[in-house]
Simulated assay, not measured.
Amino acid sequence: MPGLTAYGGFIELCSPKKGETVFISAASGAVGQLVGQLAKLFGCYVVGSAGSKEKVGLLKNKLRFDEAFNYKEESNLDAALKRYFPEGIDIYFENVRGKTLDAVLLNMKLHGRIAVCGMISQYNLEQPEGVHNLMQLLAKRVRMEGFSALDYYHLYPKFLEMVLPPTKEGRIVYVEDTVEGLENGPAALVGLFSGRNVGKQVVLVARE
């Protein structure tokens, strides 16, 4: 399901072109890591944000993003994005919302595309944060659209056709975060909302 989500949201919804600039928030997650690698296959310039030094290293070294940064170390996200995207962002793969989305809106290019996959920073809040820069959608004619992997389930064979060859060749890799024992499942679930996991969170119930 994460793979089909990445394929549908990035390929089908955003229609990437060679040379375009792509930003992915929560990029070390199950979906984000594949979006970045698909973008590289299309010849895009790819930057991801994550919440730790280790995750940034994973994005740049193992997953071969062009750049990555720890959003927790950036006091001004608008300035950070201008540093990595001096000419603006063509495609933003949205996973977090909040201050990140507000900063991205200021840095989108004319006719940019935003695929809304998730908004994890706003889940389970009594009072979700507002978004203040939505006028940029109008000024820059940006298309922002939410989606579900189920929207693209009929394209599953097409998805496999695209990702299986580069996966076998080692040009697409995948990182999972596995905890062992059903008793550790609740803590693993809570960890999803604090950014503790890397990639898909898996609970190994038993080895036999």
Rank of each mutant, 00 (worst) to 15 (best):
S194V: 11
Y153T: 01
N124Y: 12
V190Y: 11
A187L: 12
H154I: 04
P166M: 08
L189G: 08
L164S: 04
Q122H: 12
V190D: 09
K168W: 08
P166H: 05
L189Y: 15
G199E: 01
N124I: 09
Q122N: 09
V175R: 08
G130K: 15
Y156I: 03
Y152W: 01
V131D: 06
L160I: 02
L182S: 10
D151C: 05
L155T: 03
S121I: 13
V198E: 07
G191H: 11
E180Y: 08
Q127M: 10
K168A: 15
M162D: 03
L138G: 13
S121N: 10
Y156G: 00
R196N: 14
I172M: 05
D177K: 14
F193M: 12
N124K: 11
E176W: 08
L134G: 04
Y156W: 06
F159E: 00
E180C: 02
P166C: 10
M144T: 01
Y123L: 15
G181H: 03
V173E: 06
P157Q: 07
G181V: 04
F159V: 02
R143G: 03
D177A: 09
L189R: 07
V173R: 13
M135K: 09
T167H: 06
G170Q: 08
I120F: 07
V173F: 00
H132G: 09
R141M: 12
L125T: 15
S194H: 14
M162N: 05
R141K: 15
L137S: 03
K158W: 02
T167S: 12
R143I: 04
G170A: 05
Y152G: 00
K140F: 13
G195L: 11
K168V: 13
D177V: 11
V179D: 01
M135V: 09
E176T: 11
K168I: 15
L150P: 00
Q127L: 12
Y152P: 02
V190L: 12
M162P: 01
